[in-house]
Amino acid sequence: MSDKPKIAFYWCASCGGCEESIVDLAEDILEVAQAVDIVFWPVAMDFKRKDVEAMPDGAILATLVNGSIRTSEQEEMAHLLRRKSQILIAYGSCAHTGGVPSLANQFTREEILRYVYEEAPSVVNENRVRPQPRHGHNGTAVTLPEFRGLVRSLDQVVEVDYYLPGCPPTPKLLKQAVLTLLSGNLPPKGTVLAPDTAQCDQCPRKETKPVDLKITEFKRPHWTQIDPEKCFLAQGIICMGPATRSGCEAQCIRGNMPCTGCFGPTTRVRDQGAKILSALASSVNAREPEDIEKIMDGIVDPVGTFYRYSLAKSLLRAKVTR
């Protein structure tokens, strides 16, 4: 093996979009590949877990883990990669703040398994068979990872050095991050490798946001013809932009969809959902409880709207009475 710095990629509970985003580096990936040795990347290259286990601790310069943590196997891999890596990076919303999978924290393990294996419309499972963690087959013990009670962000399981936010992170941020790592000029531990201001800072529609929103109605994007130029909030459409870290180059907004918050909150904020809630509610144009309630009825799913990517890392973490 060469003495080039070693880099690893791994995925846990994720959709694969983060892996795509690595490929989205396009020709830049060659530059990265030249600068480093990729020693582990299950999606793209044929390395095994035992290869990693065989490495000395700290042998990998940096591992980028995407996906949230739901199973014991993901936990094991997180611990393993933590041990083998000098730098562990949570890559993408799921590893960073729990991501969409952590919306499952609104349900119990039992509710999830029952739905998935028994009740989902596409399931035919008359005997209500469910996968078991341990199963004997032809005299061989077969094991499956444990399905944990909660979805967790990477840093809720192992120590994380840096975060690359986004669903998925942009190639630009990835490239910057890799170059930073290689430069050896490392930012303080715990840094989120994206700007620390909210979306509005870079939003192409910033100028169309009125000073006083005076919200009288919340509309869902599919209920309305969206003006392609005007601030979403000014149109009554919830945009997470004000409470979401910038750095995504406003891709959704350029695609005429509001920000849904995948970059997570700024460093100063402990709970992204509570913050957008506070900002939006403050701007509601009503004084009487009944009128306020009527307007709030427009937010059909506050948890799914405000914590779409961050329930695991929210202050309450989950539906508490699951």
Binding site: T197, Q199, C200, V211, D212, L213, R268, A279, S282, S283
Partner: peptide, 13 residues
């Protein structure tokens, strides 16, 4: 100042 995104939420409050 360097942290503010200019979202204007605060202004009318």
């Amino acid at each position: 100042e360097e942290e503010c995104s200019g979202c204007k939420t605060c202004v009318p409050l």
